[in-house]
Nucleic acid binder design. Structure first.
Lengths: 240, 240
DNA sequence: GCCTTTTATTAGTCTTGCCTAAATTTCTGA
DNA sequence: TCAGAAATTTAGGCAAGACTAATAAAAGGC
């Protein structure tokens, strides 16, 4: 009897994976509960069963860490999610603010075979519509160090690489003002007391709150030349 | 709180729908149990909860009948299933014996919006790869009267319209001998004592058991002319 | 028409995954 | 250091959907 992970289990593993911070060893129960909008006891209970299945290492009151097996499962689900998002945008004409919920359900229903065929059909994209990297079939996730827009300072010439937010309102706004992965901009000014920023994007002046700036990952461009950063396979959403 | 049907509920409704025979008023508990490979008490229990939800009319010991609401839900799931099958074959290059299990999981995970977009993307197909008709978004299922191959007699010139079997072995065999929806053949001989048939298909002589013949739905062709039966939108699987 | 077989239901249990309330451990700040 | 706050776990329930065993109803054979 090979036990296939349930939808619930897959969602817990996915949440734990994305809640891992670079510096921190373990993920807290509370963070998982908030991320999945379930109660703390629900998380405690699930953690125990994940530990029994060898998906996480768990020391009571100290948080959890994914095992190799748990990480592999989490990455499979994330891979499914991101490839489905690319498919929906690229093939079926979804806009990038519509795909998250759809992918959230489909990611648990697709077979490895189907995802591999979708991946080939799409030409092996490396990033999803939000700029998130797509794990490979054997669980490799290529991550690059990037700063947030909030960390940038006046005068910097930047390229938007990734958006760390899936809410339709935020995505629609970013799309409207042109801050999609692949877009470039320049920091005109940063207000020291509240982090409010002013960008120049395609000649337009644009105010950006510190909150929003924290959700945009960017890289610095050399002077005015647009360096190739290997992001040309990201297809911007065209809804003109 | 709007309650979305669970996967289990959707599968029960789908099973009940497909078990309805033309003549018979109600579907038997036993038939549902066998179809879904669950125990009889499981069916009894689920039937009660379906009746509470207004999905079926139920009189103990007499079987069930779908209500309008139940039928609508069943047709939505069947529509999802069949459009997904066409998509997998047409767009991703699946063969018709591979699609059933994949569609069986996806049918519960797709939104109405997604299915509508897939339908448009495929050019509004009317039949799935097995020749099964695809219900419309508003729950219309266009069904035509057809005979089974087993009911045909010697000399008849026939067109294969639909295959009532989803097992890979059967489908692979039918594909190999060319008995796909859209194919035409002639009945050479029928053995009275066991129903064994001999077909002429593209000049080849082919024996077909009565069991297999019962699974093929056919229409009669006038003489040697291939009449248009509106089935030209069925795309045969090409795996040469 | 009765008796056996088949079909269906009821009764009671199990597992999963959620909940609230209560108890416990850890953290934090004076 | 130690009290209160915050985080976590334990205890105990609930609902869905499956199961087996036992009971009841319907159908078929003589």
């Amino acid at each position: 009897m090979i036990a296939v992970p349930t939808i619930s289990v897959e969602n817990y593993l996915k949440a734990i994976f994305s809640l891992q911070k670079d510096g921190e060893e373990r993920v807290k129960t509370k963070a998982i509960a908030e991320s999945l909008d379930v109660s703390l006891p629900s998380v405690s209970g699930m953690i125990k069963s994940l530990a029994d299945d060898g998906m996480v290492e768990y020391e009571p009151y100290r948080g959890v860490r994914l095992t190799k097996k748990g990480k592999k499962t989490a990455l499979r689900v994330i891979r499914n999610h991101r490839l489905i998002e690319v498919f929906l945008v690229q093939t079926l004409g979804y806009s990038w603010d519509e795909v998250h919920n759809e992918a959230e359900r489909l990611e648990h229903a697709v077979s490895d075979t189907l995802v591999a065929r979708i991946e080939a059909f799409l030409g092996f994209p490396r990033f999803d519509p939000h700029g998130d990297p797509i794990p490979t079939a054997d669980g490799e996730l290529h991550r690059r160090e990037m700063m947030t827009l909030g960390d940038a300072s006046s005068g910097m010439h930047l390229k938007v690489e990734r958006v760390l937010d899936q809410t339709p309102e935020v995505l629609q706004y970013l799309d409207r003002v042109g801050l999609r992965p692949g877009a470039s901009c320049r920091v005109v000014e940063v207000l020291a007391f509240d982090g409010q920023m002013f960008l120049d994007i395609d000649g337009q002046q644009l105010p950006i709150s510190a909150t929003l700036a924290a959700k945009l990952l960017v890289t610095e461009l050399d002077d005015d030349s647009e360096r190739d950063t290997g992001r040309d396979d990201v297809q911007a959403v065209d809804r003109s």
